[in-house]
Simulated scan of single mutants.
Amino acid sequence: MKHFITIAPLALLAACSFNAEPDPAPADETETAAPAQPAEDQATAPDKTAPAKPAPADKTAASPNILTLAGLGDLRIGQPVPEGSSWSAEGAQASDSCVVLGSPDYPGAYAITEGGKVRRISIGKRSKVKLIEGIGPGATEAEVKDYFAFPATPHHYVEAPGKYLTAPNAKSGESALRFEIDSDGKVSQIHVGTMPTLAYVEACS
């Protein structure tokens, strides 16, 4: 009787252990796959490896026949004439400190340097150079005033309606515009530069 009682609990324990379902294995969080990107999204997703598109070219800087407040061609207001430039001293000079320059690339245009730096660039009636607005020598005073409401002062040599139209910011020493209006009411010259050179009426004076 004692022998039977000892074996029965052991048999019962073995049966319970054999029939018990094993615990599910813990999920491995590191192996969880990310949801696949829809085909449509993959097609429209930006390619981060592709190079960015270049910025649009500056048409003003690229055109050799546009006069700006910065300058004309390789000439820059307030800077020396670059080495190898087509601009060079033209004719007899009034002084060593003030030099008038011309260029075969820009007929009808001239520049003035003082202290070794470009102080003014001027275009006349033979010049094909224009402002970015399309205004050049030969434009009417009315066409100028469509873009530039500049105050007028009497012309040094030409009777009315001859006059000068000078940008107000010229007084501050910044590069500025100045138009010469002839007796026919049309632009005879356009100047860009800094005072006092901008207002010279005869080359270096």
Results as ranks from 00 to 15, higher is better:
P80H: 04
E29G: 12
G71A: 02
T44D: 13
T49G: 15
V81K: 00
A50H: 10
Q37N: 12
A27I: 15
P46N: 08
E31V: 15
E40S: 13
L67I: 12
A45N: 06
I77M: 00
T68K: 06
A61R: 07
P82E: 05
N65W: 02
P26A: 01
I66F: 10
L72N: 00
P82Y: 02
A34N: 12
V81C: 01
D28V: 07
R76M: 05
G73N: 01
L75H: 00
A57N: 05
E29W: 15
A70C: 03
V81Q: 00
T68W: 01
A27V: 14
R76T: 09
L67E: 01
G71P: 01
P54I: 06
A55W: 09
Q42M: 06
P80T: 04
S63H: 04
T30D: 06
P56V: 13
E29K: 12
P82L: 01
L75I: 01
G73H: 00
D28C: 05
A39R: 09
A45F: 10
G78W: 07
I77R: 00
S63A: 09
S63K: 04
N65R: 11
E29C: 14
D47H: 08
L72D: 00
A61N: 05
A43V: 07
T32S: 07
P35Q: 06
D74K: 01
T60S: 14
A55I: 10
A57H: 07
T44K: 15
Q79A: 06
T60L: 10
D41Y: 10
A45K: 12
A39E: 13
D58R: 03
Q79G: 05
P51C: 12
T60H: 04
E40Q: 12
Q37E: 15
A61I: 03
L72E: 01
L67P: 00
D58W: 02
A57E: 10
K59H: 14
L67T: 02
A45S: 11
P80Q: 06
P46C: 11
A36N: 06
A50D: 09
P35F: 06
L69F: 09
T68S: 05
P82N: 09
D47Q: 09
P26D: 03
G78M: 04
A36M: 08
G73M: 01
